[in-house]
Computed example of a mutant assay.
Amino acid sequence: MPLHVPPAPAPALRSVLTALGSPTAVREARTPSLRNAQGPATPELPLPLHVLDELTAAGAAATRLAGWRFLIRCGDRAAAAAETRLTPDGWAFSHFFEGPYIASTERALRQAETMQQPYQPRLLSVPGLYMLTLWLHGDCTADGASGHPAATDLLVPLAPAPPGIAAHRPHRVAELLPVLTHRVTPAPAPLLSQPA
């Protein structure tokens, strides 16, 4: 079933295209694969990047849109990614980067394409666990820039995933959020006994 990729804001895409066209921005990026790419580099698959700011004891999640992430295709593969962020003046290019999440994102998207149910792909970052997931939202018509994970949405942890959480295994939000909540909730401080 095809994924329904939400459209990125036009200014976000323009800012990435401008950065790709700037020899200075590409040369100064910490992305050797982008600097050494042969042929044109094109931004593809814009995904809204949401950050999980808060997990409550009940497993409810407070998320916010942090930006839009574009995979940068050079030839037959994604060599890097570009991220944009919202500024007081609108959407602006933030930075290029590379690393294991690029290939992992591509793999998770290919995996999601084989599922029976249609989904809207997003990214969900869990900073407290240094974790990034592909968030498959069940409402394909929703605004990709807003909303919270629904209990029936799927989260696919990207590699490298935190210890004990399998990368590339889809989890229902209702199943994974309690695990994440337990992981990010600090253990209560031990009670000190009072002298008698």
Rank of each mutant, 00 (worst) to 15 (best):
A150C: 15
L154W: 00
I165H: 09
G128I: 02
P163W: 09
Y130H: 14
R172C: 01
V173W: 00
P162E: 04
T141I: 05
P127T: 10
G144N: 01
R169W: 12
L136C: 01
S146I: 07
L155T: 06
P160I: 15
P149F: 01
V126P: 07
V156Y: 03
P149E: 03
L136K: 02
A159M: 10
I165Y: 05
D139K: 06
L155A: 11
G144S: 02
P127R: 09
L155G: 05
T141C: 09
A142V: 07
A159I: 09
V126I: 14
A167N: 04
D153I: 00
A166F: 04
P163S: 13
A151L: 10
P163F: 14
W135V: 06
A166D: 13
A167R: 03
R169S: 08
G144D: 01
L129P: 00
H168I: 07
V173A: 11
Y130E: 15
L129A: 13
H137C: 09
H137L: 10
H168Y: 14
V126H: 01
W135K: 02
G144R: 02
A151K: 12
A161D: 08
L136Y: 02
D139H: 04
G147A: 10
H148S: 15
V173N: 05
G144M: 01
A174M: 13
H168L: 11
R172G: 04
A174P: 12
A145N: 08
A151I: 10
L154A: 07
P170A: 11
L158T: 02
D143Q: 11
G138P: 07
C140G: 08
L134I: 09
H168N: 14
P127I: 11
P170D: 10
S146G: 12
P157R: 05
G164Y: 06
L129Y: 04
P163Q: 14
A167S: 13
P157S: 04
G138Q: 15
A167M: 06
H171T: 05
H137N: 12
M131A: 13
L158A: 04
A167F: 11
V156K: 04
V173P: 00
R169H: 15
P157D: 04
V126Q: 08
P127G: 13
T133A: 14
P127K: 10
C140T: 15
M131K: 01
H148I: 08
V126K: 03
L129K: 00
D143C: 07
L134P: 05
